[in-house]
């Protein structure tokens, strides 16, 4: 089924088209949810809620960008909204002392690199991994992240810096990446 057919079918609330769209995008979207979630079951709950929003807001899709990108944004926002309902999340997002945080590194597999990297990200504390996911992988700016998570922009930046260095450390220890000199960007920031 082509994307156009799926879209027109979904707009008519056609179950076959909806299932086709779901089948096409759900594996990757579950991968997105899994990075935010505590476990697979939570990720599936996020995916479910996200796709319900996708189908119910399908009429808002303007055909201007890639459909996958549009779906992904909805899924990410759904994940964040679900996380925000959790008290642990609001506690975690305010953590400022990185030294006191223990990473469950033993959780990190060594089967395949992609899976390894994802598990490394997931091993980070909740607040850290959320900011890192949003900034480094989903491409949101710190300003956008601050708005999404109801935090200060500076908090988002510091969370990300700590998350990144922590993740780098883990990836090096796991021999997934080699230790390299820290690069600075054009503005001198990390």
């Amino acid at each position: 089924m082509t994307e156009e057919l799926m879209l027109s079918g979904c707009l008519k609330n056609n179950a076959t088209a909806q299932e086709a769209l779901y089948n096409r995008f759900s594996p990757r979207m579950l991968g997105v949810c899994y990075r935010f979630a505590k476990n697979r079951e939570d990720a599936e709950d996020m995916l479910q809620e996200g796709f319900i929003k996708v189908f119910s807001q399908m009429h808002q899709y303007r055909n201007e960008g890639a459909l996958e990108g549009w779906i992904r944004r909805i899924i990410v926002h759904t994940c964040i909204n679900i996380l925000k309902k959790n008290k642990k999340f609001s506690d975690s997002i305010d953590i400022t002392n990185a030294h006191s945080i223990h990473i469950r590194e033993e959780m990190i597999p060594s089967i395949m690199q992609a899976k390894q990297v994802v598990e490394c990200i997931r091993s980070l504390p909740l607040g850290y991994k959320t900011v890192l996911n949003l900034y480094a992988i989903e491409g949101y700016s710190h300003k956008e992240i601050a708005f999404m998570l109801d935090i200060e922009e500076s908090t988002s930046r510091s969370q990300y810096t700590r998350a990144k260095s922590m993740l780098e450390e883990v990836l090096v220890r796991k021999k997934i990446i080699q230790k390299t000199k820290k690069k600075t960007n054009f503005f001198g920031a990390v």
Partner: peptide, 13 residues
């Protein structure tokens, strides 16, 4: 690198 690897990752619900 993170983005690439994360994008490669998918799971079947």
């Amino acid at each position: 690198f993170l983005k690439e690897k994360s994008d490669q990752f998918s799971m079947y619900p």
